[in-house]
Simulated assay, not measured.
Amino acid sequence: MTQTPTTGALVGQTAADAAAALVPSALPLAAAAATHRDVPAGSSALVASFVGSPSAELVLVAGPAVTDAVAASAVPLEVADALRPALEAAARTLGAGVLETVRSEPVERVLGDDVEVFVLQAEGAAPAAWFAVRVRGAKVATPTTSQVPTPRANLRMLYDVEMTLTAEIGRTRMSVRQVLDLAPGAVLELDRTAGSPADVLVNGRLVARGEVVVVDEVYGVRVTEIVAGNETGGTVG
């Protein structure tokens, strides 16, 4: 009798499929269920925590073909940078949330029986990478009236949290081949005209726009517009 995949398994498969589409490979990759014992021992795993509902740990382990290709690149490129788009694609399948900085850990430390593991490979080829996800369900509690904090109290909890603001003057999309062909003197044409406002982003979310200024020989942005909450920034190409 055919078994119906559980919701958790479907979440893992969807995330793995999204990651497989963006792992560098000369051939299309497909994600197939595996176990943590299939991942070569002693490998280094790239791990990124996803904070959302649900929250999860996303893991990618690059195979020799991927690591060799990155090492042979004419442009200095870290494996974490090459695989970050794949982790971001997997994270988007989980819903709204924030993907934290990618870190490197021994595979034995992050993979176990509580992790869904998938092998990413082209038909008839050696595995290009392994993807794993550990989903942590959101804990929901129903507070009593006396436990419900006021909105201002909620904000006070966040006052000392540091956030990274990024100013962006434009974007462009390039293939891996074009990136590898970059050389000093190359000019990249962005998607905005000269004088267009710069975007101010917090954790990748558009919050304001402004004009670029120079303050004591340091670049700055003079805010000219606060963006409404329903307007968001695009995805980096």
Score class of each variant (00 low, 15 high):
residue 131 F to N: 14
residue 102 V to C: 01
residue 109 R to I: 08
residue 131 F to K: 15
residue 112 G to V: 13
residue 137 G to K: 10
residue 122 A to T: 06
residue 112 G to F: 10
residue 128 A to I: 06
residue 114 D to V: 06
residue 124 G to F: 08
residue 135 V to Q: 11
residue 113 D to R: 15
residue 126 A to S: 14
residue 107 V to N: 03
residue 120 L to I: 03
residue 102 V to Y: 01
residue 138 A to T: 12
residue 122 A to N: 08
residue 121 Q to K: 13
residue 118 F to I: 02
residue 133 V to T: 09
residue 122 A to H: 10
residue 107 V to K: 02
residue 112 G to I: 13
residue 111 L to K: 04
residue 133 V to G: 00
residue 109 R to W: 00
residue 103 R to S: 14
residue 123 E to R: 14
residue 112 G to D: 15
residue 132 A to C: 06
residue 103 R to H: 05
residue 136 R to D: 12
residue 131 F to I: 14
residue 127 P to C: 05
residue 137 G to M: 12
residue 125 A to E: 14
residue 138 A to R: 11
residue 128 A to C: 08
residue 138 A to P: 00
residue 112 G to A: 10
residue 128 A to T: 10
residue 134 R to V: 02
residue 122 A to F: 05
residue 134 R to G: 01
residue 126 A to Q: 13
residue 130 W to N: 03
residue 112 G to S: 15
residue 123 E to L: 13
residue 134 R to C: 00
residue 124 G to S: 08
residue 102 V to A: 01
residue 114 D to G: 00
residue 133 V to E: 05
residue 136 R to W: 02
residue 122 A to P: 00
residue 109 R to D: 07
residue 118 F to W: 14
residue 105 E to L: 13
residue 106 P to D: 06
residue 106 P to T: 10
residue 106 P to I: 14
residue 125 A to D: 09
residue 116 E to N: 09
residue 128 A to L: 07
residue 132 A to K: 04
